[in-house]
Design a protein around this nucleic acid. Structure first.
Lengths: 113, 113
DNA sequence: CATCGATATCGACGGCCGTCTATGGTGACG
DNA sequence: CGTCACCATAGACGGCCGTCGATATCGATG
């Protein structure tokens, strides 16, 4: 804009709000980026609906219609984002939702400062 | 699941849940993809905090630290996603949040089927 | 009418993302 | 001990995304 001493025109807005921090914005964007993918949403939905003790990778490959390494990739993304956790048992890997993780994101989106 | 005829599957999950639809997953992913960007989050935060009648583009360029076309681009993304709306006045463009849009996304993330 | 200021659009460039095949590592089982 | 099933990682490839400068549009102003 211009020096505040001389207002050129009337597009001023009372921008005295906290102004979302850079690291905070990047963090939330990172979590949302992990969520913003159809296959990952399907995975989370499946974990949410049919998992008290977890779902193994082999049960995710077929319904998603993608190769097994791709499923592992998506699970890794969700895990690095802190949205799911892994429990290894024999040669299997059971994935479960991290309790409250999705709710925290939903709360951040819903709050109006 | 041992007694299976020819399938050596040993990991079972009662996956008889609704199984998130393709178009539904793509739609939610699209909205989340629009949200998953730091500058767009900052824009939304600013619209949420300091806007009864809207914020014009010229007041967003400086605090974001990116060029004006980039700001317009992000606003276009948010608008196509149905998250913000535009009100033109003279040569200015005032952007406001679409009421309840963010809450709908938050509700979708928070629901546990 | 000529000009200026505020936005939007265009075209290009670099980087990140999702997918695949191929391969490695690990526990179970005969 | 050799083999097999499950899972993770590595590398490659194509496409989408965020950024920019240049340019077009449109209203106001003189």
């Amino acid at each position: 804009m211009q020096p505040a001493v001389d207002v050129p025109l009337a597009c001023r807005t009372p921008l005295t709000a906290p102004a979302l921090d850079d690291v905070e914005a990047a963090a939330l964007a990172g979590t949302l980026k992990a969520l913003a993918e159809p296959n990952r949403l399907k995975i989370l939905h499946r974990l949410a609906s049919a998992a008290p003790d977890g779902v193994c990778v082999c049960d995710l490959t077929d319904p998603l219609g993608i190769a097994q390494p791709s499923v592992s990739h998506h699970l890794g993304v969700l895990r690095r984002a802190g949205l799911v956790q892994r429990r290894r048992e024999a040669s299997f890997a059971y994935y479960t939702l991290v309790p409250g993780a999705l709710d925290r994101v939903a709360a951040l989106l819903g709050e109006r400062p």
